[in-house]
Structures are given as structure tokens and as C-alpha cells.
């Protein structure tokens, strides 16, 4: 019983990790309607900055949040302004996809140039120490990630529902030309939204860096699961990404223990396929949100 509980909690913690990586990706897709294939490299950039700040300045890794989150916001905003916005009139979504794939490749190679191919270990400052929660044990850092993922979902929800800028963002996401008629500067909302989405993955980077070794290809490692999570939850849905991530985390942990760790991915993708066959728009998605993709 304790084993089962422990595995369940492991799955939850893994889910929290997937969630915090995925939220920014689904946010950008939901508003700007661009699939950001450089999302994983944004994560990688954030982790390297966290590593630099922690090792060079000897600070606690979480202190890096003050630099990393604004830095990633700027990186996202610039990506939208300088890369995506000039392509938005292209009318063909594939052009934007190629642009973000290109950005991804460029960032990976830039990281190789600056940091080399070695692995960068961010000092853990106790975040890899286990703590007991009743009968089960989790890593301190994992618990913080889980809490941060919930806090982020709640914060974004409150912002979208109750602030005028949040309403403006939702208006642009739903009907771009009607939003313009309300006096909303649509391009500015896109820049802001891309920035917020990147800032979210910046927060993820700070929290993940002390637990996982940073390297130029770490983004690819996380982002494949993030894409599964985002599609499973319903493209553009923040609660969808959160619960989709928890489901994937649990499936991963349970099948890894009870079926065999080499079959984990078969189970995860198997369930993913079944859900998509039953509900093609994802768990929390609505058909209309996808209509522009057809």
C-alpha cells in the first residue's frame, strides 16, 4: 500500500514538473496561435542563466528568479516582435512553424558555442533532499515545483478573468478583428502574451535547474512530453495542460513500476492516442479553438 501511495505521489510530482513546463506553451498557442517549437530552448536558456547566477554569485538557485523570469519575458516578447509578427501576414501557419524550429536550432547551437557540450550542474542547496509526507517521501524541490505549478495556474486564471488586460487577451484570442474594433492594439497583446508564456517557462527553468543537469539539449528532453501534455489537455487550455500533465505523470510512474520501465512510453502514448480518438480536441479543448488550424 505504501509502495502504491509512493508511486502515486511520484507520478503527481512528475506531473507538476510537466505542468509547469507546459503552461507557457499552451498559453502562447491559445492566444498567438503559434506553436513555439523553441519552447524547450527557452527552458534551456533559463536553466543556463540559473546555473550561471547560482555558481558565479553563490546564491540560492531560487534567487535567480528575479533575473530569469524578466529575461525570458523579454526573450519571448522579442521573438514575437522580431520573428513572428513580420510573418503573421504570411497567412500560412507553416512559415511560423519553420521560424520557431529555426530559432530552436539556433539557440541549441548558441548554447553549444557558449557553454560547450559539458553538463552544467546547478548546486542543489538542499533541494534534492527528501522530506517525508506521512508514509511517502518526495524531494523538497519537487514539492516546490508542484506548489508553483498550482500557484501559476491560479494566478493566470485570476489575471485572465478579472483584469482588463486579461479580458483584452481573451478577446484577442477569440476574435482578433472584433478586439481591434474595441480599441485593443492586437500586436501589443501578442507581444505581451508571448512574453508571459516565455516568463512561465522561465519560472519552470529556475525550479528545474537544481534537480536536473543542464545541457544544450535539455529542452528537447522536456518539450516532447510538453507537446503531448498540451495536445492531451486541449490546445490553448491552461487547466487542460495542468490536468493533462498530472495524468501523464501518473501514467508514467504507475506503468514504469507495474508494467516495466521500458514500456512507460508505450503506455503513455497508447492512452494519449485513445483519448485523442475519443475526444480529438483534448480533455479541456473546444472544437472552435482549433478551427483556424483546418
Amino acid at each position: 500500500m505504501t509502495t502504491f501511495l509512493q508511486i502515486l505521489v511520484n507520478g503527481l510530482m512528475l506531473g507538476g514538473l510537466f505542468a509547469i513546463v507546459s503552461i507557457g506553451l499552451t498559453l502562447i498557442f491559445g492566444i498567438v496561435k503559434v506553436v513555439n517549437f523553441a519552447h524547450g530552448e527557452f527552458l534551456m536558456a533559463g536553466m543556463f542563466i540559473t546555473w550561471l547566477i547560482t555558481t558565479r554569485l553563490g546564491l540560492h538557485p531560487y534567487a535567480a528568479v528575479i533575473i530569469v523570469v524578466p529575461a525570458l519575458f523579454v526573450m519571448g516578447a522579442l521573438t514575437q516582435r522580431l520573428l513572428i509578427q513580420p510573418l503573421m501576414s504570411a497567412r500560412d501557419d507553416h512559415v511560423q512553424i519553420f521560424a520557431t524550429v529555426g530559432l530552436s536550432t539556433a539557440l541549441i547551437n548558441l548554447a553549444l558555442l557558449i557553454f560547450g557540450a559539458d553538463i552544467a550542474n546547478t548546486p542543489a542547496h538542499g533541494l534534492r533532499a527528501p522530506i517525508s509526507l506521512g508514509p511517502v517521501r518526495v524531494l523538497t524541490g519537487q514539492l516546490y515545483i508542484f506548489g508553483a505549478a498550482i500557484a501559476l495556474v491560479v494566478a493566470l486564471h485570476l489575471m485572465m478573468k478579472h483584469s482588463q488586460i486579461g479580458r483584452a487577451i481573451r478577446a484577442v484570442a477569440q476574435n482578433r478583428s472584433a478586439a481591434e474594433l474595441m480599441g485593443i492594439n492586437v500586436n501589443r497583446i501578442y507581444i505581451l502574451s508571448f512574453g508571459i508564456g516565455a516568463a512561465c517557462v522561465g519560472l519552470a527553468a529556475v525550479l528545474i535547474a537544481p534537480l536536473y543537469p543542464t545541457s544544450s539539449n535539455i529542452g528537447t528532453y522536456f518539450v516532447l512530453t510538453a507537446f503531448v501534455v498540451v495536445v492531451l489537455g486541449g490546445l490553448g487550455s491552461i487547466p487542460g495542460a495542468f490536468f493533462g500533465a498530472l495524468l501523464i505523470g501518473m501514467l508514467d510512474a504507475l506503468s514504469g513500476f507495474y508494467i516495466g520501465s521500458d514500456l512507460r512510453e508505450a503506455v503513455v502514448f497508447g492512452v494519449f492516442l485513445v483519448i485523442l480518438i475519443l475526444k480529438p480536441s483534448g480533455l479541456f479543448g473546444n472544437r472552435r479553438a482549433l478551427s483556424h488550424l483546418s
Binding site: R170, A171, Q174, N175, S177, A178, L181
Partner: peptide, 10 residues
């Protein structure tokens, strides 16, 4: 605008 163009989900 013509056709109302409300934000239907809001």
C-alpha cells in the same frame, strides 16, 4: 460590426 462579432465564450 455587421454580424455582431461578440466574444461568444465571454
Amino acid at each position: 460590426p455587421e454580424g455582431r462579432q461578440l466574444f461568444g465564450d465571454m
